[in-house]
Design a binder for these strands. Structure first.
Lengths: 136, 136
DNA sequence: GTTCCTGCAAAAGCTTTGCAGAAGA
DNA sequence: TCTTCTGCAAAGCTTTTGCAGGAAC
């Protein structure tokens, strides 16, 4: 399964979310730039194309996309909120040297523990930190 | 293994960290109140005992304790940084209804995936969200 | 006396809110 | 026309910084 821009547009339509120019641009950006960008990175890059873009709109759009389940929030660091278009189960590793965030595969089902037997689990996040091979 | 206040004091001494009154109070608070409090909760509660306490000191103290490895930061939510005196490997579950954060046991070793073969992993966090049994 | 710690005030940074105008159905 | 979206400005919060006074050794 690939994350295609066209598929995501379809999902928005099904959820009765207007496909405004700004929203589509944010969505397109997230499908192309897979570096788990911050609001500021998204805003700065998109402003090159859309000179009238405001950061408020980026915030609004991301909130809509997150609520629609098309984007997930990454809070690996307490001073930077990042966004990921890939909502499938996977882990995130942040290199504390270069700051880059890597994705890694993980079997979330193997994580289920008896402590949470009667809990309704909606969201699973696995965050690792350390040094990446390039920085070692 | 228990997390005893006296043991933690010893650890601070070994790391040449001054055991000031404020620092000991923050440390003691974290060992007693195991609800993963925010800076504001720590400050508000401790201010009842120490009327001259400033939030800056709470921030300073937490930074010292985190750097010393006695406290871990929990960034399960992007708008609230929480602190946990238990630095052993375990997962955190946040109930999105009542806001309470639960600890759960997890075998971090079973998480190792081949994608991170050449990575130096220093920190592992597992965050789940959903609804707790009491709210269901 | 020297170093480190505390705490007030101010600054900085991120995110949300209010609102008026624009765009779209 | 009516609703929704955008974007500016302001407000709200959390966290950091500068600095002076105080405590500890």
């Amino acid at each position: 399964m690939q994350l295609l821009f066209e598929d995501l547009k379809e999902k928005l339509k099904k959820k009765n979310i207007n496909l405004s120019y700004q929203r589509l641009k944010v969505l397109e950006y997230l499908t192309q730039v897979r570096t788990h960008p911050t609001v500021d990175q998204i805003f700065t890059d998109l402003q090159k194309d859309i000179s009238t873009l405001s950061k408020t709109t980026v915030y609004n759009t991301l909130r809509v996309l997150v609520q629609a389940g098309l984007v997930r929030v990454i809070t690996i660091e307490d001073n930077e909120t990042r966004y990921d278009i890939d909502v499938r189960d996977h882990g995130h590793f942040k290199c504390e040297s270069c700051g880059k965030i890597y994705d890694f595969n993980i079997d979330m089902n193997s994580l289920i523990v008896k402590d949470l037997n009667n809990f309704k689990i909606d969201d699973k996040n696995v965050y690792f930190k350390g040094i990446c091979p390039q920085c070692l």
